[in-house]
Structures are given as C-alpha cells and as structure tokens.
Amino acid sequence: MTAYFGGCDVGSTTGKSVILKDGEIVADAIIKSRIDPEETARLVMADAVSKTGGIDRVEDIAYLVGTGYGRNEVPFANENISEITCHSVGAHFCDRKIRTIIDIGGQDVKAISVRDDGSVLEFAMNDKCAAGTGKFFEAMSRTFDMSIEDFSRLPLKANRLVPVTAQCSVFAETEVVSLISRKKPPADIAAGIHAAVAKRCYTLARRVGVRPKVTMTGGCAKNAGLMQALEKVLHSEVTRLDYDPQLVGALGAAVLAMRKCDR
C-alpha cells in the first residue's frame, strides 16, 4: 500500500493541511483557526483526510509533521518543524529556482533566503508588531467597509498613491479614516497602504538578501495589490507559485514528512 504523508500548519489565523502520496499532492484543506490549536489541527487534518479517497483516519498517515505557531499542539504529529523551514522547503518543492521567500501570515512577516537544496540559508522575522501582517489587512478592510478580497484588489484601480505614513495598525487606521474624510480616493489610499507594507517587507527581505527568484507565501500572498506593490519596490518580478501560497508551509511540512520516510 502506498504511504500517505501529511503536513499540518497551525497558524494564528488559519489552519492548513496537505497530504502527499507518491510525491504528489492528493488533498489539502484550509480552515479558520479555533481558539484551541489542537482542535484546529484535528479539524483541518480530518478535512484533508476526507478528500484523499484512500484513507479514513489521520492515524493512517505514515508520517505527519506539524508546523506553525501551534506546531507543538498537532495531535498524531510525529515531529514538529518550524514554519520557516517548512515554507522554504514548500516553496522550493513548487519551484526549485526560488531563492527568496516573503511569507506574510496572519500575525507575522518573514523573509527567508533559500539554499539551492531548499533548506534555509538565513531568515528574518518581524517583531511583536502586527503591522504589515494579515491582521493589519483585516483591520484596514474593515475601515474601508469591504471584504478583504475586495480590499486587496482596490489598489489595482488607483490612479496615484496617497502616502500612508503610519506603520502601526492602530495609528494607520486613524490616518486612513482621516484621509477618507478628506475625500482622498479610496483606491489611492489603499495603494498607499499596500505600498507601505511592501516597503516594510522589502526592508525585512534586504536583511537576508534578495536573490531571484523571489516569491510570496502565506495568506497575504493572495493579495494582488500587495504583490504588485512588492514588485514595484523590489524592481523585479515576484514569482506566483502554481500552488496556493497559503498552503506552502503545510506543503513543506508534508514534503519533510515524506523525506523522513525516504531516508
């Protein structure tokens, strides 16, 4: 019987899981994180397992790697590996030419420099501040009274950029309310917000060195406006992976699980 390998990424905002069989992705799942990380892990793994068509229980997975902030809480996990390593391996699995990753999750931002073999050469993380993370974008979209998906596309309609100076999520909200009341076009303000976040990512990425190919992972990599802003500050293309960027950490965990058993 062919073995199944799993990766479970328990993040602050979402839980993600990926299951591999014969080196191919056979199932994946994303759910909103519950308060209890263990519950998140159970639910998201059960969701993915139900999609495999081959196994019925998480226990049937030959090797499971937990990752993300709740990596210690993944039931049935054979081991846990940091999300930094998992994003590196996951992105490299998708595209072997990736050398720089900017991972923007729900509550943190990471820049990762990747070795030729997909392992981590160097990394940098944001500090305790939520500026520029998924939470920041959630707060901003609430200020604009639109869904996060609509907000992420809003900068694409901008004619010019209204600079937003505040990096703090709280102060940025105040500044944006003030700009809206001054009748600045929402799309231009949104462009300013995304540009500010992109600059912050760029600063982080420079600490590890920006080498092509560059990609974005994490939930915020689905933000088209941010992707565009990042390409502008980097002066280079940001590679869109063929796989859901939000699942790259879980994918890396599953790949590492598979490699454990290949040895």
Partner: peptide, 25 residues
Amino acid sequence: LEREYSLSGEGQIRTRVQAFIESMG
C-alpha cells in the same frame, strides 16, 4: 535575537531558535 530585559515573546524566540537549528541541518 533582539530582546527586552524581561522575558517576553517566548513563542517567537522558540520559532527563531528552532529554525536556526534546522538551518544548521
């Protein structure tokens, strides 16, 4: 690692150190 005098952000320290150890193979 940058830190404050009193211990805080243990989860972040753990993630960084674990990734550091993993990066050394």
